[in-house]
Nucleic acid binder design. Structure first.
Lengths: 143, 143
DNA sequence: CTCATGTCAGATCAACTGAAATGG
DNA sequence: CCCATTTCAGTTTATCTGACATGA
């Protein structure tokens, strides 16, 4: 690979992300799901029933993509949508019992990916890694 | 943002890469270039004249994308292509003097991005960060 | 009138695929 | 015949834009 990129932090992060992305998308595909689906299920479990727009903001997914993902999640029986009682524009999305189990299942898939992703680091290195990457990740999107 | 993702290394790396990508593409766009162009110029400077396929392998860019990028680089006078003397399939690509200056200019753009990207870390943290990210980045694509 | 919501069609961008034409 | 190279057209995936209808 290029010498000029060896020592660049942005390049190393790019490689790490590339590996992360491969592990994640393969693991979710093998599990019959997608990262977007996981994030929406997680948002609903964390905050309770939400409108689609709220679910999108909480999970960091565009509303138009939320629409598409919920189509599949509804289809699979993991979520249910009903008209919002007090706001006719909104649809209230809630997790089903089956959706809760699906979330738990995907949690284990995700944990397994973390283990493989962090395999090159020992325990104290992982701690350092979290601290450092978080500092960078928080920049520009703090709070 | 989602609690479930706060502690996931893959998510933090995703955020870091997102920031890196924003800084990089904005900086290169403002400089009137693109990351692909930089990488191809860097490959030619490092290895001397190359066929397009070789330049692609060295810079990690698909041959079809190399074709497109070289169209622009040739147009701008940063590279020149001629038939390979001993292999009629290949085109030999070489850096022009102007291309060499362009590479130097983009080097400063890239350095500036590194500075801003790593701003949240002090000197010893940066050192740690390089060590740790490299361990992860090298996994799956070692050597 | 304005804004938010849900939906849809499509743009964008990086990365990749497949095939054709040419030559080793 | 098989493989490498260059080129082109087009696919994929995630992300985002713009527009529309509806309702607050």
């Amino acid at each position: 690979m290029l010498k000029r990129l060896h020592g660049r932090a942005t390049w190393l992060v790019n490689l790490a992300q590339s590996r992360s992305h491969t592990l994640l998308s393969e693991a979710f595909a093998e599990a019959g799901s997608r990262p977007y689906h996981y994030r929406i299920l997680a948002a609903l479990e964390q905050a309770g029933p939400l409108s689609q727009a709220e679910a999108g903001r909480l999970s960091g997914i565009d509303r138009s993509d939320v629409t598409v993902a919920l189509e599949a999640l509804d289809q699979a029986g993991f979520t249910e949508r009903q008209p919002h009682p007090s706001d006719g524009r909104k649809k209230l999305v809630r997790l089903t019992a089956s959706g809760r189990r699906e979330l738990a299942r995907l949690d284990t898939v995700l944990e397994d990916v973390q283990t493989r992703f962090l395999a090159p680091l020992n325990a104290s290195e992982r701690q350092q890694f979290f601290t450092l990457v978080r500092k960078i990740a928080d920049e520009g999107a703090p709070e």
